[in-house]
Amino acid sequence: MTDTTEDTPKKKKAMSMTAEAAAADERGSQDAGFVQSKHAGHHWSGEAPMFIYAVWYLAFLYIPVMFLPLFSFNDSIYVAFPLKGFTLQWYGDMVDNPALLRALENSVKVGFGVAMASTFLGMFAAKAMTRYYMPGKGPITSFIMLPLVIPGIVLGIALLVISNTMGMSLSLWTIAAAHTLIGVPFAMLVMVSRLEGFDRNLEEASLDLGEGVVQTFLRITLPLAWPGILASVLLTFTISFDEFILAFFLAGNEVTLPIYIWSQLRFPNRLPMVLSLGACVLVFSFFIVTFSEVMRRRGVGPQGGAAI
């Protein structure tokens, strides 16, 4: 792998078919002999290997999950080629399945609560982090980010153990608490990059013009931060909606959708239904997350929002 910027003249002849040469070419190298070799073919001969790799990588990311929607329309109980024919039967199975609908309802409830709680907590933490001079900011940030690097199983059983010790029975509340724990760091990251994206002088100007802290928040911070808030709500909702590892330990009688899916994996004859359900969940998550990503990176630039 090699970099591309200008090249030393002495090496150029030898490298004329490579990316480096193409890039140097693009920038209008001063080496006259080299410039003459410029044409479109050279450009692609350099960029192509990396581009092909990138496309291959995207395929690696996307194609595996594409099989779920593909086979969800396949008129066969087995997930195998060749495809047998088109059917919507498995989607129909989903619709009149009360347990599934119940799980869906639970997931939405938990997700909504988690989205609100995480975004609220993440926003205030982000505001404190970006707007105030505080000693110990670095360690506190690491502390809030900790749930991202603690293995999920550890958090799950730790919360299970504490609920048990405190005599709390497992319910949607315990799942929501766990999801809030992992939602907060993401919400804070999204909000920090959003708040850093606009000048803190704007808030000071509002204070200076006679608006108190609350009014300034409502009239300046909120309108300017709303793409970030929306992104955070959608993102934390999806995190909760799709989360399995923690929910598995903390679910009581009421289950969420991923746990329901897990429970159905034992029954081979329900596999097609699970496929169609999975396809729905994937498509739904995909659109919410894409929208949320567009929101949070808007106006912040590729670098600002890139820290996960």
Binding site: F198, N201, L202, E204, A205, I220
Partner: peptide, 8 residues
């Protein structure tokens, strides 16, 4: 303000 802080 130095950068005027006009509310965008």
């Amino acid at each position: 303000f130095q950068n005027y802080a006009i509310f965008p």
